[in-house]
């Protein structure tokens, strides 16, 4: 991380490119990340959106964006990005687009779309080598409709459709994307703003498909008080439940390794969606299984 303008938190621009006044919940972890991403990318950016919470950022006649926004549908935001990018390229080639009128093309999607009906379009955009940044805010469920289980809901989490906790494990979108060998893949979280800013900056300098999976703690869907947003994010990283990493040239690098991982219970206990693992009695088997999967992950990580 040498070639970065973000050495410190105060280096991150605060031009408020993303306007306030949106309909996102108080304490939205996704909004926190999108705000920062817009700041780093600047206003010559178009956000091509898939149906999800962030669709409601723009409701006529209100929009928070300083750049542009195009809502498509739940399944095909990457195809919308393809159409925009292709059109910009062909118009530039034909002399109908001034260089300063060009745009960075960003897909803005939730995990429900990214791991479900949008996965095919995402995979195909990678296949085609589309020059775009794909941002998935991952709130681990269909948040916009009241937090039903999605393929990215973690083991044990209660959702509106898994009252006793999800029996499935979280789908590894990072791994799926990385296997397609795009130009850049990374995870991030809004509560680690310098790490996030560096990754967005790095992605913006690379041509080709760049994918960013941003954990988006959701007070409404996860069951925590909104003021705990940053704390929950820190716990996700500190316990190793949310590894911060990136892939470049096929090599995975962990950008922030917790020096001594805290027990994952600390992260789970702070969220209502895992309360049934502790009360009325401890679900030792599930708790152990979650801890084991975190441990197993980190055993594969070579630090340095």
């Amino acid at each position: 991380m040498k070639d970065t303008r973000f050495a410190h938190l105060k280096d991150i621009p605060s031009a408020h490119l993303l306007g306030a006044g949106t309909a996102m919940c108080a304490g939205c972890g996704g909004l926190l990340a999108v705000r920062e991403i817009h700041e780093v990318l600047g206003d010559r950016t178009v956000f091509v959106n898939a149906a999800g919470c962030m669709t409601l950022l723009s409701t006529y006649p209100f929009t928070p964006f300083s750049g542009s926004f195009l809502y498509t549908a739940m399944a095909s935001a990457p195809a919308g990005a393809q159409g925009v990018r292709d059109a910009l390229d062909v118009l530039a080639r034909k002399g109908r687009l001034a260089p300063e009128d060009d745009l960075s093309v960003v897909v803005l999607t939730g995990d429900g779309s990214a791991s479900g009906m949008g996965l095919s379009a995402t995979s195909a955009a990678i296949d085609r080598g589309l020059d775009f940044l794909y941002v998935c805010y991952d709130n681990e469920g269909y948040g916009n409709t009241g937090q039903q289980a999605s393929a990215t809901t973690p083991l044990g989490a209660r959702t509106a459709t898994t009252e006793r906790g999800s029996v499935a494990s979280k789908k590894d979108l990072f791994g799926i994307w990385a296997a397609n060998r795009p130009a850049y893949v990374a995870t991030a979280i809004g509560s680690e703003p310098v790490d996030l800013a560096r990754k967005v900056e790095k992605a913006s300098k690379i041509r080709g498909p760049k994918l960013l999976l941003v954990l988006a703690p959701c007070p409404t869907g996860w069951g925590f008080e909104s003021d705990q947003l940053v704390e929950i994010g820190r716990l996700a990283v500190k316990t190793g439940a949310w590894p911060l990493k990136e892939v470049e040239g096929g090599k995975i690098v962990h950008t922030k390794v917790p020096p001594k991982r805290a027990p994952v219970e600390e992260y789970l206990r702070a969220q209502g969606r895992f309360a049934h693992l502790f009360e009325p009695s401890r679900d030792e088997a599930t708790l152990a299984s979650i801890q084991q999967s975190v441990d197993a992950y980190w055993r594969t990580v070579t630090v340095g």
Partner: peptide
Amino acid sequence: ESEHSMVTAAGAAAATG
């Protein structure tokens, strides 16, 4: 990769001019 995506790309490109 599909007609759904094809029409999305068509509309997005037209929206781009």
